[in-house]
Design a binder for these strands. Structure first.
Lengths: 246, 246
DNA sequence: TCCATTGTTGACCGCTGAGTCAGTAATGGG
DNA sequence: CCCATTACTGACTCAGCGGTCAACAATGGA
């Protein structure tokens, strides 16, 4: 059978490549350095990857595949999911908010677990060759937001005079920045309360007066078991140690 | 006196460099190509710039210098400016909103006029060497937002329970994304109504109930000469052709 | 017109680093 | 133990490109 290959070789090389890409950027990272960091030789690198760019692509694509799997799991955006139903009255709001919050938490948890790759992509992947990946992802997020907002306006959840295009920029930009911050933070963060706060900010920006009143009254009536997804404002509740800069 | 230098040489080279950096990115742009595009020789390039990176730095720094001048002009953030006064009651709100909107319009107009350089920086400057410039600018914007939010909370304009750190991420991220979109759009846009819409979204997210009520009543009372900075909602007003994707 | 001075050119140099490949090491089967 | 087979090594090649400089061009003053 011949000499068996070291089963760790490729993993070691991928890890090392990730670290070098993060530190130097795709263009300035040297294959030699990646190999040394992985404790292998340059030749070993080329046994597993056709080129430096190929290694980068493999890292990012495997992460994106897992992200897609995470997003499809649950499938609330799918036909039959809650965000495609057109028959919800305002009363359906609480369920919508809960589903929205769950999805946010799910995505941010994924981002947190893959923060090394995300940082590499965002900071080390500043290459003209692959920068389009980030833009493409941003654009996809935004078009999802457009769909969601238009749907929410039809349902009466959001202001009828909402400029959906502009609001989608504002909201997706907001989430984007929060995610970028999350990716850089080190300590463990309780994501759900943070997501709920973001949701509350966004809701304040876009919700229709009727929906805002409903949410407000529901929160008050349902104490002390508040509707999931709506944080109870008030000084008694201890502030969660949030995502703070430095 | 000897041969006089071509006065257009440096400008031509800067323009060409800008275009090449945008098209290929700093790392992949070739000095040769820049020179050819400018109708000059490679040697001429090195008469004006110490290196490729030096040219990039000169383009960005001259733009940043003009931006700083624009921001300082007016100086509402300076001591004595409206955003440093601690004695404004809620009644001072309209002035604050007007000043805020003016500043936004001013900045977005600058971004629009310098959109070529901004695009170059955002899209072509994806280099590990200069990427920090973007992050630094984002961080500065955010810390300004933190100061502004904390001040507004003290003044009673914004919700007392606002998580200033998180909200600053959300808001600066929102503005960032709007600016990035603006930079890519081609046609002329009437910036003030767009800025007013963004302001209204942000206000909805963060303003205190008392302030929101005040703003709302003022808008209603002051018709048909609305308070600058507050757009009158209503179906009669024609929708401005917004910033639309593709 | 001639020359000193300064501007401009582009062939050339040298370095860096991606990618190769002849040689060596490790393994399992016979 | 030997050999076929596959894994792995790292010195080497070489293309590409940043940066240089000897030669040449343009100009104004004497």
């Amino acid at each position: 059978m011949g000499r068996p290959s070291d089963p760790n070789a490729k993993i070691d090389l991928l890890r090392a490549a990730e670290a070098e890409f993060l530190a130097r950027g795709l263009d300035h990272a040297k294959v030699e350095d990646i190999a040394v960091r992985a404790g292998r030789s340059k030749g070993a690198f080329y046994l597993h990857f056709a080129s430096k760019e190929d290694a980068f692509r493999q890292i990012v694509e495997s992460m994106l595949a897992r992200l897609a799997a995470t997003l499809d799991d649950g499938g609330i955006f799918d036909p039959g999911g809650i965000f495609t139903r057109e028959d919800l009255g305002l009363a359906g709001g609480p369920q919508v908010l809960a589903a929205w919050l769950d999805k946010d938490v799910q995505i941010f948890e994924f981002v947190w677990h893959n923060r090394r790759v995300f940082r590499m992509l965002l900071e080390g992947g500043r290459s003209a060759t692959f920068g389009y990946l980030i833009d493409e992802f941003a654009e996809r997020t935004r078009s999802n937001t457009v769909r969601f907002l238009a749907w929410g306006v039809r349902q009466g959840f959001f202001r009828a005079d909402l400029d959906v295009d502009l609001a989608s920029l504002v909201i997706s930009g907001a989430y984007d920045r929060v995610a970028r911050h999350l990716v850089r933070s080190d300590g463990q963060i309780d994501l759900r309360p943070q997501c709920a706060k973001v949701q509350r900010l966004v809701l304040g920006a876009i919700s229709s007066p009727a929906f805002a009143a409903l949410v407000d009254s529901q929160v008050r009536n349902w104490n002390p078991a508040p509707l999931p997804g709506i944080e109870v404002p008030g000084p008694r509740r201890p502030r969660t140690a949030g995502t703070r800069s430095r």
